[in-house]
Write a protein that binds this DNA or RNA. Structure first.
Lengths: 202, 202
DNA sequence: CAGGTTCTGTACCTATCGGTCCAAAACCTA
DNA sequence: TAGGTTTTGGACCGATAGGTACAGAACCTG
């Protein structure tokens, strides 16, 4: 019987787990985030999560599966948050502005997806596929907000929404990267302001 | 006697080397570039370069020293090339435009410095320091070109050249990122055009 | 050609890698 | 409380990591 990976059958029987899946996934993700995938050993993961190897494997499968799980959760949460911010903003252009500025907020830590993509996309097809899909989702969300901003009269109607969305996303990722490379926070914030102004002026 | 790392004393005596340092450094760099630092083993390096471990250590020191050497060379060459492009352009604004567009040319491979920074800057102070210095040098070069473009009437004189330079650099790095994440070449080129147009219009 | 020196490749070292196994512990149902 | 089932954590595994040692090859000078 396959007991590995996320089994939930008969949870009301036998010895119950001592940990919360979400907590473990968060700790593990933070470890990967801090050191990168290849540079993180299983011992690092057991130390970060407090679980033994057996528990880790029983619950999530091997190192790669565990990593993909954290990446997947991160992407899902990020996209949900982005959608909420974009659709929740009074005027769409404000949401777009916040989207760009958000690139300056991660600072040295960077973006988990971006870091993972840079480290692994060239050699790991699963990561590459997940990253590509995530970026398409983001562009779609942003493009919808661009269209709304056009309807609201805050962006020129002439521009193609998808192309414009990609441009904003590129600017945001550039900010994330420059932040990770060590630019001081206040200078980074200034760059973010300048970029948002230039790209979103009518 | 310390024979390690780049010794050149008495080159006209005893058994001469069978390899060219530059060739080896290029092969090694390409290996690091393709797989990342942590995911590259010494066996990978001997395979890529054709040298044995003994030769590699004798000539360049350990894995980390060897890596730093390739990173250093890459940065030096890149900055020299950038300076040449910027100072060699008829009008400074054309050089700046090419600078931004260059972010779309690396495609899946990405930028060696950017990849290395993303993977290592958070945990490796040497890499962090080198990256920070490289980015300052680049900003300085670009800022000088911005000033020239202002004198030539292609950019408004009101803007602060360093802040503007950082903005252009951020856009370029964003393109590198998006390219590495798998956006098709023609779409990436389009984004690059759009960004350059938006940022460099008078 | 002899002596001295450097370079090269391989064998070898210890530590750690990711992953498996399993006996004991912990819990639920009956 | 007894029986059944799952979880746990550490012992253990072969493979590979980065790095060293060293014997012999290759070359220059004199």
């Amino acid at each position: 019987m396959d007991r590995s990976v996320n089994n939930r059958y008969r949870r009301d029987v036998a010895r119950p787990r001592k940990f919360e899946e979400q907590d473990v996934l968060r700790d593990v993700r933070d470890q990967f985030w801090a050191a990168g995938y290849a540079a993180t050993s299983l011992d690092d993961l057991t130390r970060a999560s407090g679980l033994g190897k057996g528990s880790l494997y029983g619950a999530f499968g091997d190192k790669h599966k565990l990593f993909m799980r954290t990446l997947d959760d991160y992407v899902t949460d990020s996209c949900a948050g982005l959608r909420q911010n974009l659709e929740g903003s009074e005027r769409a252009v404000d949401g777009l502005r916040d989207f760009v500025l958000a690139g300056a907020s991660s600072l040295r830590q960077g973006c988990y997806l971006a870091n993972s993509t840079t480290e692994l996309a060239a050699t790991d097809p699963e990561v590459a596929a997940r990253a590509r899909q995530a970026y398409e989702d983001i562009v779609e969300l942003v493009a919808a907000a661009v269209k709304r901003a056009q309807r609201e009269g805050d962006l020129p109607v002439g521009v193609e929404s998808t192309a414009f969305a990609r441009m904003l996303q590129t600017a945001q990722q550039g900010l994330v990267y420059i932040g990770r490379s060590g630019l001081p926070a206040e200078q980074l914030a200034r760059v973010a302001q300048d970029l948002a102004d230039k790209l979103l002026r009518p």
